[in-house]
């Protein structure tokens, strides 16, 4: 059992430091020649590319050759009727499911088939359709968990007397950061509450705060507004716009068409497992096939 056993890889710790996606991108480029070559075809402004993604469950094809891109610093909406394969697409991108075929690239690197923690490690983070708060842990604990590559996650560093000190110091820093995030989301009064006791909307806020603390470049949000009351929804949206201005990129799955149309600059429409159309909200709105898809007809693609 070596000391490095449970440590996050070194590059992950470094990747944690810069706040800027471009810097990360350069790092990915220099990591190995294979991704370097792939990266040349990628415009710098497209951190996430999905190519011909397919996922089959037994005989059922949930995602059928979906391809799309998410641009740097954008708020992109992913919509589609029930069963269009949005959540499955999310799960394939983030490594929860292994795609049957297709490629997912993140900052030019092929991340298809990586485990969820490896995907998150590279700066592609997600939230869940139903908030996955850690119920028997306090809000603070939930958030303290999130920052990547904490030295104290190494068992030995946490336990051994002469390294404990540095862990404690790091904890102070993490606590500061966490508290800033709590204040940003205006939930600092809930810090000592068990996450399981929060309301549905508060859980959504907590989850968004938690995923932000992993310091991602791109966030995939699975129905962030489901079950959230209107005033909280307003606040959440404000937060999203504010964060986008800070340079974060968002891909949002949402049922509420109006919400997506009013807030996203790009919209991807999925239907029966593949991408039906993609463009600005105006483009999408004027596309008759989208309406047909929502009304439940067969759509020619």
């Amino acid at each position: 059992m070596s000391d490095t056993d449970i440590d996050a890889p070194d590059e992950a710790v470094q990747a944690n430091v810069p706040d800027d996606a471009d810097v990360d991108y350069e790092e990915a480029e220099t990591q190995d020649s294979e991704t370097e070559e792939a990266a040349k075809h990628v415009p710098e402004a497209v951190p996430l590319q999905v190519e011909s993604l397919t996922k089959q469950f037994g005989g059922l094809t949930a995602v059928d050759g979906a391809s799309f891109e998410v641009e740097q610093g954008s708020l992109t909406g992913l919509i589609g009727p029930n069963g269009a394969g949005k959540s499955t697409t999310f799960n394939c991108i983030t490594g929860v499911l292994e795609p049957t075929a297709g490629v997912v690239r993140f900052n030019g690197e092929d991340i298809t088939g990586l485990a969820p923690h490896e995907v998150a490690d590279r700066g592609l983070a997600r939230t869940f359709q139903i908030a996955r708060e850690l119920g028997e842990m306090t809000v603070l604990e939930n958030l303290m968990l999130a920052p990547m590559g904490q030295r104290g996650e190494s068992l030995w560093r946490s336990v051994l007397p002469f390294t404990r000190r540095s862990v404690v110091e790091e904890e102070e820093e993490v606590l500061e950061e966490v508290w800033d995030t709590l204040e940003f989301f205006d939930i600092d009064h809930l810090a000592d509450e068990y996450a399981g006791n929060l309301s549905g909307g508060q859980r959504k806020l907590l989850e968004l705060a938690r995923v932000l603390l992993t310091d991602p470049d791109v966030l995939l949000l699975d129905e962030p507004f489901a079950g959230v009351n209107p005033s909280l929804e307003e606040r959440l949206l404000e937060h999203l716009h504010e964060l986008r201005e800070q340079g974060y990129t968002f891909l949002i799955v949402e049922h509420d068409m109006d919400l997506i149309m009013n807030n996203c600059e790009r919209v991807i429409v999925m239907h029966q497992g593949s991408v039906l159309t993609e463009g600005t909200p105006e483009d999408v709105k004027s596309d008759e096939r989208v309406l047909e898809a929502y009304l439940g007809g067969e759509v020619e693609t």
């Binding site: 485990a115 969820p116 923690h117 998150a120 983070a125 869940f128 996955r132 850690l134 028997e136 968990l145």
Partner: peptide
């Protein structure tokens, strides 16, 4: 503790 509460969510947090 996080693994005890929700392993998948913990995994997705890196």
């Amino acid at each position: 503790k996080a693994i005890r509460e929700d392993e998948e969510a913990t995994n997705s947090l890196g």
